[in-house]
């Protein structure tokens, strides 16, 4: 096994690969990330041949680790970096039990956090990534971790998965080419390219911050916004959480506090510039 240990926010990973190339790509992509605390990784993600005797001949890459899905579809070795990324994601989606996990992006400014959530295709990931290049600190583009007890958001700044049109959009604003991974064509998710978050997102990954607003964007419509009730916000957030139920009463307390102290707003936006303008307008109203 080729191996790389690294820490992203509160998670110390051990990543293993039966092939060298995907680990080398991962090492380049995650340049500058810290090692796990005390050199001790507590969560393992791996990729290995689906069938051990086919390690070299058109190998099928299986996504494995401490937590596994029985029916995870194997991938081709050309997409090995994506497979590793998915294995790392899966560990959090299935295994995280210390923080309330929202399927959402989040950005911070002046110590206050805007959470962007909604179904895939809503543009939350792209919008989070763009805000991260325009004066906001990116906390995460996909998984938001909320600390029970304090209600604070913990950053989880994994590499961002840019898909299809979002690739060119970020290529236009990110000058540092070293932050991009290789372009992966025709993956199960379309064309895909990873982007390492901006340096401050990595340097400040242990700074927690208080949620101020939950946004539910919808991409591709004329600009429009609408508030929602606390019960609706609560219900939508629980639907978008992979571990709400498993956290039991602590999950309930944490989620209820978020839904009753932070406003929730649905908004539509026509394009990325329009989306960012609306977010800035909300931020101004909240004094962020």
């Amino acid at each position: 096994m080729y191996r790389l240990d690294l820490r992203v926010g509160p998670v110390g990973y051990r990543v293993g690969s039966a092939w060298r190339r995907p680990i080398d790509a991962l090492r380049r992509l995650y340049a500058g990330y810290p090692a796990p605390d005390e050199g001790l990784a507590t969560l393992t993600a791996r990729i290995e041949p689906e069938k051990p005797w086919r390690r070299h001949l058109r190998p099928q890459v299986a996504i494995r680790g401490d937590f596994e899905l029985p029916d995870a579809v194997p991938m081709t070795l050309d997409h090995g970096l994506l497979a590793i990324e998915m294995a790392m994601n899966l560990q959090i989606a299935l295994g995280e039990r210390r923080h309330l996990l929202l399927h959402a992006g989040a950005v911070e400014r002046n110590g206050r956090v805007i959470i962007l959530t909604g179904e895939s295709g809503s543009g939350k990931s792209t919008l989070s990534a763009l805000l991260g290049e325009h004066g906001w600190r990116l906390l995460s583009d996909e998984f938001v971790l909320i600390e029970p007890g304090t209600g604070l958001v913990r950053a989880f700044p994994r590499a961002i998965s840019l898909k299809n049109a979002a690739i060119a959009e970020l290529e236009r604003v990110v000058a540092d080419r070293d932050r991009f991974g290789p372009l992966l064509r025709a993956t199960p998710k379309g064309d895909l390219r990873h982007l390492r978050p901006a340096p401050d997102a990595i340097a400040r990954m242990d700074e927690r911050a208080m949620p101020a607003l939950v946004l539910f964007p919808t991409f591709g419509h004329a600009s429009q916004a609408e508030g929602m009730g606390q019960a609706e916000l609560f219900a939508l957030l629980t639907q978008g959480s992979t571990n709400y139920a498993a956290l039991g009463e602590r999950g309930f307390e944490t989620m209820a506090r978020l839904a009753t102290t932070v406003p929730g707003v649905r908004f539509a936006y026509p394009d990325s510039a329009g989306g960012m303008a609306i977010v800035e307008q909300f931020a101004a109203e909240l004094g962020i």
């Binding site: 796990p36 005390e38 001790l40 507590t42 995280e96 039990r97 139920a245 956290l247």
Partner: peptide
């Protein structure tokens, strides 16, 4: 500390 946190997560899962 990190081991204690990982084991605490396992206790949360077992309680559920």
């Amino acid at each position: 500390v990190s081991v204690m946190e990982a084991l605490e997560a396992a206790r949360v899962q077992a309680a559920f």
